[in-house]
Write a protein that binds this DNA or RNA. Sequence first.
RNA 1: GCCGGGAUGGCGGAAUUGGUAGACGCACACGACUCAAAAUCGUGCGGAGUAAUCCAUGAGAGUUCAAUUCUCUCUCCCGGCACCA
Length: 749
Amino acid sequence: MAKEYDPKNIEGKWPARHRYAQALAGGQKEVDEYNPQKIEKRWQDHWEKSGIYQAEDDSKKPKYYALVEFPYPSGDGLHVGHVRSYTAMDIVSRKRRMEGFNVLYPIGWDAFGLPTENYAIKTGRQPREITKENTDTFRQQLKSLGLSFDWSREINTTDPKYYKWTQWIFLKFLEKGLAYKAKIPINWCPKDKIGLANEEVVDGHCERCGTPVEQKEKEQWMLAITKYADRLYDDLDTVDYPNRVKIQQKNWIGRSEGVLIKFDDIEIFTTRPDTIFGATFVVIAGKEDKFTGRFVTNPATKEKIPVWEAEYVMSDYGTGAIMGVPADDERDMVFAKKYDLPIVGEYKKAGFEDFGRKVTKYKLRDWVFSRQRYWGEPIPVIHCGKCGVVPVPEKDLPVELPKVEKYEPGPDGESPLANIPEFVNTPCLRCGGPARRETDVMPNWAGSSWYFLRYCDHENEKEFASMQNLKYWMQVDWYNGGMEHTVLHLLYSRFWNKFLYDLKLVSTSEPYKKRTSHGLILAEGGEKMSKSKGNVVNPDTIVKQFGADTLRLYEMFMGPFEQAIAWSEDALVGPRRFLERVWKLSGKTKELFTPYAMICQDVFEKTVEKVSDDIEKMAFNTAISQLMICSNALAKEDFIPTNDFKRFLQLLAPFAPHITEELWQLMGGKDSIHNSKWPKANWVSNPMFIDISVQINGKYRGVIMVKNIATEEEVKNTALSLPEIQKWLNGKEPKKVIVVPRKIISIVT
RNA sequence: GCCGGGAUGGCGGAAUUGGUAGACGCACACGACUCAAAAUCGUGCGGAGUAAUCCAUGAGAGUUCAAUUCUCUCUCCCGGCACCA
């Protein structure tokens, strides 16, 4: 349709670079047209060269550690969802720098994982090469957005210098008995040929490919996260996370207090031991419902009650056996009715521990930590027939991933590493006899479980990070990420951090002081963006057509940050037009010898206040709206004092760093605007006269202007004397008058 | 089933220690500029009515001088957990 806004038209106009005169009263200046393509790259290069976003490990300034989830560098490139999260924390980071903090806002690559490996198998290429290509693309894309990352601290989980320490931490788990091998039924995805953690199974299907998950008995490395269940649960009270995140983690850990009670040789678990006098049968976990033919004694009533097997009792929770109290439990009732078991309606209440001892049970299971795949950190142990499991000594770390020709896992799910004799066969490091290297690798959650620590000291070759740096930088002050990581990455990394804290290797028990979550960006129409549907928006296209500042502004303006929202190509022009108006406003500035705003006083001071507050609340949409209100007000003026305009630019700078830097420099700014001091409201507006609205019977009928210091009586008299109010009173005396100081007067007739 | 979050113009959304509902933006309409179009600027924009005014925040009740905001009941939508004893 011809009517539709076509960004290509704008783009096509740039090369003309014509000038237009501003016919404005009070001062005419010629202003170049706003051209993001021209200025954005230039400032990005300049910032990089001058290193203004690099954090210092030693500084007199207070520190601030802002963190976003480092991306998995997939072949699809950067997603507009990344842009939303990264821009938000970029705004916070930039504001903090302007407030005088020494800010650490780092980035890196969480690059191990299945998609790269599968792509390597398909194309017959090396995962390393593919990862290199993808990170190069991502890096270039992120840089084009003007994010204030400290690129000097870039990390990559697939770098041997990095995973050396992932392996090292694993060995600590092993040393402390928290890593162990167990033959367990695991969730097995037959398509990906990989074992899955409970957290990776969604409704019985593989989280990645959707294939129904099978159960398979396998020897697996486990991490004993359940040992930390209580602390992971209780310490949630010490951190600032959204409530829904805390609830989800608590549900996942699934702690419940109950008692173990023996019905003869069958031990049951219950959280309601008080109902034991109503227990008329015992049920143990089984594949089908059937009577076992056995009877046991109810320790409370001393009666013989039948023992049944049933599907509805789970083998892996509690003791795998329950007492059936049909009067109190709905499921027991259904079962009792179906099989005609006795139901006792009235019974005595028992005390909590009268018949058993108190225990705490969890839904949380130990973490299945090995994968029979290639593209992951090798688990650094050796199996010796004589010595058993021998950890690889620290001096031999990292155990590097060998280059191989084929990455396909074996038909029964052996790791591809098992096919490489040079890798597998190795002398035992203890006895020197023949031994086999472990061929399993770690899950893709390993590297991300501690990456926030490495940023603090990313080049350290002696430790994963020095205590000195950790003490300075940790905790992470503000961590933003996706809701989908609530029970995976977020729980795992809290666990690793606590473990390292117990070894006195990190300085804080909780890694993240504050956590927030961004909402998903959906495709136009509200569906999820996906390659197969062809509805994915590429940030590069938007940057090219509208500029990075517009994209950033749009993503922050589109709706409440924590809410899912659909992309709208049409709406992009709003922020773009706003920036163009700001650009033009610079032509109206006038050097005045006044220290503060002479015009639009109220709007100006309100903007300083609201933008400052809203950024803290992540209410970016209303902050931008206020900036628009302010620029609209400035546009109505004949001229703008330069100092005021500069303050306006400072408020806009965290959102749109390029255009503000350009205009700041044009106004004669010496240093970068991003090193300038965040504006403060000059004064709290305290006018002589204020407006008070008048309501009659709850309906708005007019407004009066009174002295700020007017008494209730004065307000009342002023209101009642107004002719338009008298009209509504119709000569009657009001029954009641309510005066809310400085706000409203309500008259009841 | 249980837990959590929602429902406001054509659209995204503002406004909560209860105090003029619809800020800001998009779309749309009209006007200015232009040979014309685009862009830009100006004006309008919840519904009804010439107007005064009335009605309107998912539905219904309640508390209050005053309810999008608080309480109760219901409907629908989204997210999480799901025989967890």
